[in-house]
């Protein structure tokens, strides 16, 4: 298998943690809430899923419990940031630190242990195509994530629910005047983001690299937040961005495997450097951000 085939085949799996977490964050931000705790939510989901799968609970239960645990932590965020109207940046950072701390605390005795991942499900015919065939052999979570991406896109494009979420984010006062429960919608959006962040962490810990190591999320939650900006709050562009980051993280692995004469530490900082560069390019287009940005992002709502 050459480097190109390796990247094509693994890109979607590598992209899945980014994709799930970024979609969840997108929904929260569309409702006007900036939740910077994604890294901690993912870390908590990851450790919960790992513990359950390690003790034989199975992947389904692992994912469900991870989604529930991260949703619970994201509701703590919601109560303090939305209920008590605290500074969303500060609450998000605190949730991030707390989530990573809990993850390290619960995962202490599981360090370096492994679990079994999930088998690949191949699409007939398509997966036999040379070079790009690997793209069509993915595990069930990747297929479900792709379906979820389409569903979220459709909800925002075609349904009233999507419209209400956007109205609450764009102009909460007007949405309130129309009788929509602004705070309840924001709670729901944050909890949804929490569930997806939990799934993202679970995928990273029990499918993508099924080995427990403290700090295994390694900035992926933060990159997911950046992806929402890259994708200018649009599902389709966030999907493309997640694929780009999947490919970048695999490319740095492939480069290390081919024995390229660059230090592996510098190569592992490649995703962070790409984030910085792309963030600069996209953000310098102020018109684009203004056009697609969420007007009330990060601001508390007072009746």
């Amino acid at each position: 298998m050459n480097a190109l085939e390796f990247i094509v085949a693994g890109m979607l799996a590598a992209a899945t943690p980014f994709l799930l977490a970024a979609l969840g964050e997108m929904v929260a931000e569309r409702a006007g809430v900036l939740n910077l705790g994604v890294e901690g939510l993912m870390a908590l989901g990851a450790v919960i899923a790992f513990i359950i799968v390690y003790h034989g609970g199975g992947h389904l239960l692992g994912f469900l419990a991870a989604g529930l645990a991260s949703a619970a932590l994201s509701l703590v965020f919601a109560v303090i940031a939305l209920g008590f109207r605290a500074n969303q940046v500060a609450v998000g950072l605190a949730i991030g630190i707390l989530g990573q701390g809990l993850s390290a605390l619960f995962g202490k005795t599981y360090e370096s242990l492994t679990v079994k991942g999930l088998p690949k499900l191949s699409l007939p015919w398509l997966s036999d195509i040379p070079v790009i065939g690997g793209l069509f052999a993915q595990d069930v979570v990747v297929w479900l994530s792709l379906a979820a991406t389409v569903a979220i896109w459709a909800i925002f494009a075609y349904t009233k629910t999507g419209l209400v979420v956007r109205a609450v984010g764009e102009n909460p006062k007007a949405a309130h005047a129309l009788g929509y429960p602004v705070i309840a919608v924001r709670f729901a959006a944050v909890a949804f983001g929490g569930v997806l962040a939990g799934f993202a962490g679970a995928y990273a810990a029990v499918v993508y690299t099924p080995l427990w190591a403290d700090g295994m999320i390694a900035g992926r939650g933060w990159i997911a937040i950046a992806l929402v900006v890259f994708g200018t709050w649009l599902t389709s562009r966030i999907f493309l961005g997640a694929c780009l980051f999947g490919a970048v993280s695999l490319a740095s692995l492939a480069a290390q495997a081919t024995g390229l004469d660059v230090s592996s530490q510098l190569l592992s900082s490649l995703p962070y450097l790409v984030t910085i560069v792309v963030l600069g390019i996209i953000s310098s287009n102020r018109r684009l951000l203004k056009l697609n940005g969420v007007a009330s992002l990060g601001e508390p709502f007072e009746q």
Binding site: G219, S269, Y272, L273, I276, L279, R286
Partner: peptide, 19 residues
Amino acid sequence: LNANEILVSLMLALVAAQL
């Protein structure tokens, strides 16, 4: 470049750790 300082400063912290 109008980029969000939260994300850029955090990414640079992760780069610094690798450096």
